[in-house]
Write a protein that binds this DNA or RNA. Structure first.
Lengths: 340, 340
DNA sequence: CCCGAGAGAGAAAACGTTTACTCGATCAGT
DNA sequence: ACTGATCGAGTAAACGTTTTCTCTCTCGGG
């Protein structure tokens, strides 16, 4: 276990004080002579000295680390997001602690505590729970440790910065697209309404239907849970009373759309000729795969990178132009919605 | 910016010395009276004191963090792996720095330096480059900072622990499966032969062919780069001289298999009735998607969790029963290889 | 020749812990 | 009553930095 080289070693090697070495390490140009700087630089280079970041952080109270709290990195949306976060961190000299909560409140709280203990400089946070939050969380806020939400509000912290996706606008865009194709009887499978984005998407659907003067049949609106099988089950529910009363189906995400697709095909319907289908997320798999679902793209990478940029600005004490950044929706037409 | 509560505050509040508080925090039972412990515990609880981990680490030289270096978290295999790593870390009180290198040597080296500076207790490392390595990397080794490879050897560090997937065995298993279906003319698209796993898979293919007494037509073995389009391009190369001379095609991963599938279909061949296809990875997408490719499953989560368990054992100074853990391959028959 | 300014550099405190050492008090055994 | 453990608790050094002061030169201007 070779003892690491410390600033003291460099000082001895150069015959100067540690203060002087510290000055050249942090290249604060004041107070050190040209040739001394040169000499110390050379020795540092030669012996490969690297300052101990723990000791530095002790003094400066800055660790150049952030915490990233998400439900599950295996979800492709979050993989994208994580990569966006990590890239921006790296560009700016930050490192990133990854934390998976599965959306569970107790794991969220546990991680918040851990991250506070580790003295992260900032926190990037996503979750489904926007009701309750942990004391440590409010501590972050109270201590003015920068905090940036990703697709999340916490009711207690209404002014906290965040990056959001325009779920309502996306749903409106998609609904309008389907309406423009001539559909009037449109079924809607929402995500779990306990989540903010499911509510927003549903609301975008409802309001667009209304603003187009199309009445929504309440029996055609069902709640799912964002999983494949719940899309499948929703179709059973929609077909409960015999023949479908809808020519198009919009799902709260692509996974449910795929489940619905499967159910419809198994029951002998042609998609999209009999029934059009649309989703949300633009889950992108290798282009070979079928079926393709017309969808709303959610820019995961962008949300991650921009959220991190906001956070870094905050950590640097820069004032934010916009504290809540909302990303517009984009439609990805893949042919699963046809004109009637 | 409310100043955080320190051990000194607790000491003052309780009218004891910081040493005593430290003892109860680390509950080292020696040397503190029953009632004192109780009193200090209560105050700590009340004011919500949490020790500063930086200060602790300064003394103990232990940070309870690890570095996880992978090419890209967006690759589903690595998403799985990352989650396996993070779960085990969390169970054991470790936090994990995520680093994406895109397989680039310079980014790998950069992260190694960063992680060493951050004084991680251990390092989990994957990459494609097994030839060159960075001085800091060897430093890890020299300083006996635990190191665990994931699907990687570094030639300079032959004794380093690691978790591996039995690529050669997997390829053998798959090749045997295809042979058992009666195929004799089998094309093989390898991954980039600069990578260890591509070489192993190819080698498993070649040796199984040979051990079954089937000669390999050199023109039917081409090199790809693990990406979709290289599978597509490989088919062009294989069909260069007119009609296919093979009835089955094994690709070094599923992505290339899919690219090959697309190319074959576009050229009017039926898969699998004309040509069977098999891959590697078991990229799992929602079950609705077609086509399905018979493949070898690589247990990403398991590799991550077991690698982390090894690393943690090393960090605790426990001797390892096995320093190189090799995970066996499992075949996932999805019907894309038919009997002839 | 003297004074003051400014440059170069060192001394030492501080950051919040852990831990080896010390010390007094209590208490059991003789 | 004296000795020697043992227990409870405090003192202070140490970890490797940053940073504020302070000090000593050197040099230019009057």
């Amino acid at each position: 276990m070779a003892e690491p080289i410390t600033i003291k070693d460099i000082a001895n090697l150069c015959g100067v004080s540690i203060a002087t070495v510290s000055r050249v390490v942090n290249n604060s140009p004041k107070g050190v002579g040209e040739k001394t700087v040169e000499r110390i630089r050379k020795v540092i280079e030669e012996v490969g000295y690297r300052p101990n970041r723990l000791a530095q952080s002790m003094i400066t109270k800055v660790t150049h680390t952030i915490g990233l709290v998400i439900p599950d990195v295996r979800n492709p949306f979050f993989s994208e997001l994580v990569r966006g976060v990590e890239d921006v961190c790296n560009e700016n000299g930050y490192s990133c602690f990854l934390c998976n909560t599965d959306g569970k409140l107790d794991k969220e709280n546990e991680y918040i505590d851990i991250l506070r203990d580790r003295i992260v400089d900032g926190l990037l946070f996503t979750t489904q729970n926007n009701k309750e939050s942990n004391p440590a969380f409010l501590d972050f806020h109270r201590n003015k440790t920068p905090l940036c939400f990703i697709e999340r509000y916490v009711d207690e912290l209404p002014e906290t910065p965040g990056v959001f996706f325009d779920n309502e606008g996306g749903a409106a865009l998609l609904t309008q697209f389907v309406l423009d194709k001539g559909h009037r009887n449109i079924a809607f499978i929402s995500g779990p309404l306990s989540t903010m984005n499911a509510r927003m998407r549903k609301s975008g659907f409802m309001s667009t239907m209304q603003s187009n003067g199309v009445e929504v049949d309440a029996r055609l609106v069902v709640e799912g849970n964002y999983r494949l099988d719940s899309g499948y089950a929703a179709v059973d529910q929609l077909l409960e009373h015999g023949k479908p009363k809808f020519t198009a189906l919009i799902a709260g995400n692509d996974l449910m759309a795929l489940g619905a697709y499967q159910a419809l095909v198994e029951r002998g319907y042609q998609v999209p000729s009999d029934i059009s289908i649309a989703g949300f997320d633009n889950i992108t798999y290798p282009a070979v795969f079928r079926p393709l679902i017309t969808t709303i793209e959610i820019p995961g990478y962008k949300l991650g990178s921009c959220g991190t940029e906001m956070l870094i600005a905050l950590m640097k004490g820069q004032p934010l132009a916009v504290t809540r950044q909302v990303f517009a929706a984009a439609l990805r037409d893949k042919g699963s919605v046809v004109q009637i």
